[in-house]
């Protein structure tokens, strides 16, 4: 599996903006963030109740990456989260204040030598459920896209 695309550009227009929020990098408040975001997507019927756990898992992975890796756990640095919708798809973007990352920094999940690493599985897990996972601003901005359930 190839690493997700990472480009320097800003995220493209994702359609109608339905949610935007700025949160500090406070992992102890993460659950409230996850619940609020899941309530928006499940509440609108864009994610089915059956898929709520997958959604929460992807949200957890992307928010932890942004707060812990992107913002290096600095509570003074915010993450910006937005949800857009267009053409029967929703897109959630999470942008941190970090410098991003390079695809070469990610372990290759198909390389047997990476099998026993203790990190580097979050992106693979997210891509299992999402239709698309792309990175903008050189990796500081993640865009999670999936077709709407209804």
């Amino acid at each position: 599996m190839k690493p997700p695309p990472i480009v320097a550009a800003e995220p493209p227009d994702g359609g109608e903006l339905v949610f935007a929020r700025r949160w500090p990098s406070r992992v102890e408040r993460k659950q409230a963030m996850l619940d609020e975001l899941a309530d928006v997507l499940v509440g609108r019927g864009w994610v089915s109740d059956d898929d709520r756990e997958w959604l929460l898992l992807c949200l957890d992975e992307v928010l932890v990456n942004a707060m812990i890796h992107g913002n290096e756990g600095d509570p003074d640095l915010d993450v910006d989260v937005a949800i857009h919708a267009a053409g029967g798809r929703w897109r959630l973007t999470v942008c941190d204040r970090g410098d991003g990352f390079r695809g070469e920094e990610l372990p290759d999940p198909d390389d047997s030598s990476s099998l026993l690493l203790e990190h580097g599985r979050g992106i693979r897990i997210m891509r299992e459920w999402l239709d698309d996972l792309s990175y903008y601003r050189s990796g500081a901005c993640a865009a999670l896209t999936r077709r709407c359930a209804t």
């Binding site: 756990e53 929460l56 898992l57 957890d60 992975e61 932890v64 026993l116 690493l117 203790e118 990190h119 580097g120 599985r121 979050g122 897990i125």
Partner: peptide, 17 residues
């Protein structure tokens, strides 16, 4: 267990080792 993250999987790998 109904849900676990990649961080927990990493800890299980460490435990296995």
């Amino acid at each position: 267990v109904q849900a676990l993250s990649s961080a927990m999987l990493g800890k299980l790998v460490a435990l296995h080792k």
